[in-house]
Design a protein around this nucleic acid. Structure first.
Lengths: 204, 204
DNA sequence: GGCATTTGTTGACCGATGGTCGATAAGACT
DNA sequence: AGTCTTATCGACCATCGGTCAACAAATGCC
């Protein structure tokens, strides 16, 4: 007659469910805009339980966005064919297509990531992985000279800012933007080469 | 015999003092790292008084960083002589010199600004002013075509990211970095021109 | 079928935060 | 000396991230 006050789940099940809830909410709101209470509520669970599964908010956040990062990683995986520039263009295309489908999520993700040093690592590390292949093939070295390293970091910032502008205005096609980013990449490398002769590139 | 429990100041005086306190603290810590109570304490004043002068934390923050923004604006004011590229180089030099002297402040400022949409406006608007002159002279137009606008926004992101990398590693001289940024600017414009023929530049 | 054990789950609590409000007292003006 | 304006404060509120001891649902055992 008396129904249970709560249903007990397997650890894996519950964990999955909590990550899903977080992933859904963090896709629409930034880190600070969502409280642990709201996430718990969305999952139909007490806040204390959330803390039983995750030591703190940041860890839950990292686990939640890891989901989206996984999607992105898969999408931007280069096919390994063509010139480095071709591969870059290919990766960027997948990247931009995903953002086109998930504009809000991307905006909130960038917003959260820049604010939280620990979340920045997640984003940076996944981007670095994609970039690394291309850089190694392009420069033949794993640890680039300072001018090149700074240039590449700058280019990553360029991408973020340009995409943010694109999402806000939407007056370029995805292909146009992709070409712009690729051209900016090539141009930035040239600029680095010009500023520091130590920077050598395998592609003219 | 009984000395006053508190001293009463003129509105202007008190406001100045509170902004100074905020400006000092926000120069060393990010928006979230400082509480209103701390600011009030630093000014030797109750928290309620802070709220009497500023409607909320963000407004106080904006007023406080406006100070630093004013410094920067003055420093990066172009002399109006030489080619647009020369002027850009000149502005950037002042900008970088300031950052070299106030590395922590700059880092915390960027961190706060990217996280808070409302604070971003302050930073963006001041940068836009400096950029505007150069763009007008360079392109002859006040409202650039989309590809150019996106490119310029991207370049601003490039600057932030490159400087952040520079501050972290400090393995480039200020002149090297300045040249890198200027070269990247020219290169990015070329890339924009190449991606969209509608982008015309007065300098080859 | 009943009972003990395990552990997933909860409500109540903590200090700190951003923010509000009515009461008070400092100082200027007469 | 007395009055009035208003700059200032202490006390309060909801909410935040986070903690903890106690409860109760499912499971295994006999």
């Amino acid at each position: 007659m008396a129904e249970p006050a709560y249903t007990r789940l397997q650890v894996d099940e519950r964990r999955r469910q909590l990550i899903d809830a977080g992933s859904t909410l963090f896709a629409e709101y930034s880190f600070e805009e969502i409280s642990m209470r709201q996430i718990a509520e969305a999952a139909g669970v007490s806040k204390a339980l959330l803390y039983h599964y995750f030591p703190n908010k940041i860890e839950l956040f990292k686990a939640a966005i890891q989901e989206h990062a996984g999607d992105l990683q898969r999408i931007t995986e280069p096919s390994g064919q063509g010139t480095p520039i071709d591969q870059l263009s290919e990766s960027l295309d997948g990247y931009l297509a995903w953002i086109e489908r998930n504009a809000v999520t991307w905006a909130k993700l960038v917003q959260s990531a820049t604010a939280l040093p620990e979340a920045r690592e997640v984003v940076q590390s996944f981007r670095a992985a994609t970039l690394q292949n291309i850089v190694v093939r392009l420069t033949g070295t794993r640890s680039p000279p300072p001018a090149l390293r700074t240039t590449l970091q700058g280019w990553l910032g360029y991408i973020d800012a340009a995409i943010l502008d694109w999402v806000d205005n939407r007056d370029l096609t995805r292909e146009q933007l992709r070409d712009l980013l690729v051209a900016a990449f090539a141009a930035a490398l040239l600029a680095a080469q010009q500023a520091d002769p130590k920077v050598r590139l395998d592609v003219a």
